[in-house]
Computed example of a mutant assay.
Amino acid sequence: MAIATLEQWRDLYDLADQLKERKPWQRFEDIDLIQIKLPEYREAFTCSIMGKQEFCPGISLHYGIEGYSDVVMLMESGDFPVPSTYVMGDIHALTCYYGDQEELDDVQMQRIQELGRSYQGSMDWTYFLSFEPRYSPSDLSLEEVKRCTLVFKALIRVLDCLQEEPEKWPDFENKEILRATILDTGEMSMESILMPEPFPRYKMIELPEDLKQSLKEKPIEDLELALDLNYLFAPVHDPDYDRPLNPLVLMAYDLRTDFIVHAHLLALEDDEVECLIAMFMELIEEIGRPAKLYIRNPTIYYALESLCYQIEIPIQIDALEELDEIYEHLRERI
């Protein structure tokens, strides 16, 4: 992985600190989206400004339609009691945080010292993380530093323009977003547009009729089955990859007996929905249909909703807090 020079990091930190001085989270909710189209990139960046709700302030960048769809998924994740470990583990994002000193790792602390930066107090320390599904949050690569630098330059222009011309403020409450376009000449245009349709985020599997009929004929057993997908956020270093892996676990759990029926650590090349369907059908074949299925993860819910309706397995959305302790034990063992 190509690494940015100290001077390239200095430019990025200068811009990030200029944004921090403007405190955009005092005016923006994290769902008030700004899209920035740069001449250097084919697709736009979607910017989300965090911190209005007294959480850690920051700015996240999401590239292209895939990144925008991740933002929509984050906005809609409140419909399910899905843990933040899954939500944050399954997105593409470049994020600048303004946090506390203890949140920084040794590399980030050393870089700040080398840059001669001075931060003090809570929610003041500037640091960056790159998020990618199946990988642990990592330091920015050279390309990612370049992307953040260009976007932050444009974002500062956008914020200053909104300060001077408040009539350009979008109607965020009615599903508008602000789109800023930087031309090759350096000129910038801004317009309010309706939120685009996201890329389909969840896969839905349709089984052959004979297979669904076979599953439907299996007896209903005294089993309250919980199915879950979750990231462990315990970095696994593999020399074949240039960033640490973030283990993704597929789990089936019997809530009545407090027993793990099945647990599978997905490989990087595994498709989680295909693994889910295969495991679910195998459990029904071996044990029978569960009396009720408990789910908190939207990926699982949308993959199984239609099938469960057709084979008469009731689904209930539940926080499944009893699973969190199991994941903690798994995390400690990796």
Rank of each mutant, 00 (worst) to 15 (best):
S192F: 00
G121S: 08
L12I: 03
A2L: 13
M75S: 06
A154P: 07
R331H: 11
D79R: 12
M73S: 08
L140A: 02
L330W: 15
A4D: 11
Y231K: 04
S306K: 10
G89F: 09
P244Q: 07
P200N: 05
V261Y: 11
Q163D: 14
E21Q: 13
F80T: 00
L61Y: 13
I326N: 03
Y294V: 00
F233I: 01
E322V: 06
L323Y: 01
L159H: 01
P208I: 04
D222H: 11
L225R: 05
A252V: 00
V82A: 07
Y41F: 15
M50W: 12
E272H: 12
G121C: 06
L6W: 04
K203S: 11
D90Y: 07
R201H: 14
S136G: 07
P137M: 07
S136K: 01
R42M: 09
L250Y: 05
G99N: 02
T126Y: 10
E224I: 00
E224S: 12
I49R: 03
W125N: 00
E40T: 13
I315F: 12
V107L: 13
M109C: 10
E165R: 08
Y202A: 05
E40Q: 14
S118M: 06
D171H: 11
E7A: 12
Y253F: 15
D171I: 03
S84N: 13
E66Q: 09
V71T: 11
H329E: 15
D14G: 02
Y294M: 11
L293M: 10
L283Q: 15
E221Q: 14
D17P: 01
Y13T: 01
F45K: 01
E286W: 02
R10K: 15
